[in-house]
Design a protein around this nucleic acid. Structure first.
Length: 259
DNA sequence: ACCTATGTTGATAC
DNA sequence: GGTATCAACATAGG
């Protein structure tokens, strides 16, 4: 299930392989993935348009058409979505092809190829003119001062604050655990209890975790992730990892090092 | 067979 | 307003 790094790889795939291609037909018949649109609405908006740019903020993507003159297509990979362009796929880290019966939304190009949202669980989205402003700054781009101010406040557990997409866009469950482990910070500490040095350290490790995951193929390549099982141990100090629900999600951390 | 788990988001309730 | 919980979806695994 994709977080910021997987989405960035999907965006890059679209940018490399789909821009400049003209849409001949659109399959928008999955009314759950295309909610709240009716079947045919997205087809009417995008048929005949040419893809001109692929953008991303956090886990949200949007594609411009007709050099910015046409409507904007918002895409979200949800919990199990991937983007397939012709025979290339990025997104959900499972085997690269997936099952074509999970195709939920498709742009068919005039040249015979296609861009598809393939999503096992149907929690992904394809929408017209998405509202990107509802998201906080991108987790990989946010400036130091903005990070201090937005993340370092509130009584909610630090991990919940990190995963709040209105605070900071792009961090999900695995990336949060990996980042907090790298920064040696406890996920259960109130976000407002961090000092500036801790917040700066958190931001630095977050950026490093994101860069590494984009390069290596996704958040599942993180150092902590393979140890993130019941009875798993900290790969640095060997202590048994703690496990609890934090911010509504299953959380693993090193109770010795992460304070 | 049945129950639990899953990397997301959004609506709802306090 | 901030925070917590549950539901939406479909599959995989014990």
């Amino acid at each position: 299930m994709p977080e910021l790094p997987e989405v960035e790889r999907a965006r890059a795939l679209i940018a490399e392989r789909a821009l400049g291609r003209r849409i001949a037909a659109v399959d928008d018949t999955d009314t759950y993935v295309c909610r709240p649109h009716q079947p045919g609405e997205l087809a009417a908006a995008f048929t005949g348009r040419t893809l001109s740019a692929a953008n991303r903020r956090g886990k949200a993507m949007w594609i411009e058409t007709d050099d910015g003159e046409g409507p904007i297509l918002g895409l979200h990979l949800g919990m199990a979505g991937r983007i397939v362009v012709d025979d290339h796929a990025e997104g959900d880290p499972a085997p690269s092809d997936g099952n074509p019966s999970w195709d939920r939304f498709t742009l068919h190009f005039e040249d015979g190829g296609a861009l598809t949202l393939r999503d096992k669980r149907r929690l992904g989205r394809a929408v017209l003119d998405p509202r990107i402003e509802a998201l906080g700054p991108d987790a990989g781009e946010i400036a130091r001062d903005a990070f201090r101010e937005r993340v370092g406040r509130g009584d909610a557990p630090l991990k919940a604050r990190l995963m709040d997409q209105a605070v900071l866009a792009g961090v999900g469950n695995l990336l949060a655990d990996e980042t907090l482990w790298r920064a040696r910070l406890s996920p259960v500490r109130p976000a407002g209890s961090l000092d500036d040095d801790e917040l700066d350290r958190l931001r630095r490790e977050l950026r490093a975790a994101i860069r590494s995951a984009i390069r290596l193929g996704g958040v599942h390549t993180g150092e902590l992730i393979e140890h993130r099982v019941r009875g798993g141990h900290c790969p640095r100090c060997g202590a048994e990892l703690a496990r609890a629900t934090v911010g509504g999600r299953t959380t693993y951390w090193c109770p010795v090092e992460q304070t």
